[in-house]
């Protein structure tokens, strides 16, 4: 197994912004000179169907960009949780959007599980479309995948130009996720 390899699957429906969340993470990793791959699902299923992305971050060249057992999972919907939840490696992080998923995870014993009311926090932050970034923040806060400031910088870059007006709300949303993630990590017995 490659050293310091993190694979994260971000799964949702088309339009929920999981591909974008993955891109923000991938860009941040690249900025830190890490190896990275961003592999989306594609095709007709993306038109309102599932839209998943797998991001791999490593210190070594990435082998398969396609993973069976990720170390991280962000799920926006129940079918995605049921599909990918059992595959997360022990010691991994599972971020669940409780705005959409009314069940918990049975992986509390060996993973850090973060329950995130993503839509509610996004609304509080000022943009209901920023639920994806709340989720990403929760993941970054609950894992040691990348430093928070590196991901924030990447997020700002992602929205530069015509979309710059969305940055403040998106940053607030991201940070509220980070808070939740950090406290989940601190409260988890899984973290050594």
């Amino acid at each position: 197994m490659s050293a310091h390899l993190t694979e994260v699957i971000m799964a949702g429906f088309g339009g929920q912004g999981m591909l974008l969340a993955g891109k923000v993470l991938a860009h941040a990793a690249m900025g830190l000179q890490r190896e990275v791959s961003w592999l989306p699902s594609y095709g007709p299923e993306m038109r309102g169907g599932t839209a998943n992305v797998t991001v791999c971050i490593s210190d070594e060249p990435i082998g398969s960009p396609f993973v069976d057992r990720p170390l991280g999972l962000l799920v926006m919907s129940r079918p995605s949780l049921e599909k990918f939840g059992p595959r997360v490696r022990p010691g991994g992080v599972i971020v669940i959007n409780t705005s959409m998923i009314d069940v918990g995870s049975d992986r509390d014993h060996d993973c850090v599980v973060v329950a995130v009311p993503a839509r509610k926090l996004a609304e509080v932050a000022g943009s209901e479309r920023a639920a994806n970034l709340v989720m990403l923040g929760a993941y970054v806060g609950a894992s040691d995948v990348l430093p928070v400031d590196a991901v924030e910088a990447s997020l700002v870059r992602e929205f530069e130009g015509r979309k710059a007006r969305f940055v403040p709300a998106n940053l607030t949303a991201f940070r509220s996720g980070v808070e939740l993630g950090r406290s989940a990590r601190q409260g988890s017995e899984v973290v050594r």
Partner: peptide, 10 residues
């Protein structure tokens, strides 16, 4: 293949 086409890497 489609994976290389669709994937982002640095």
């Amino acid at each position: 293949d489609g994976m290389i086409g669709q994937m982002m890497e640095p």
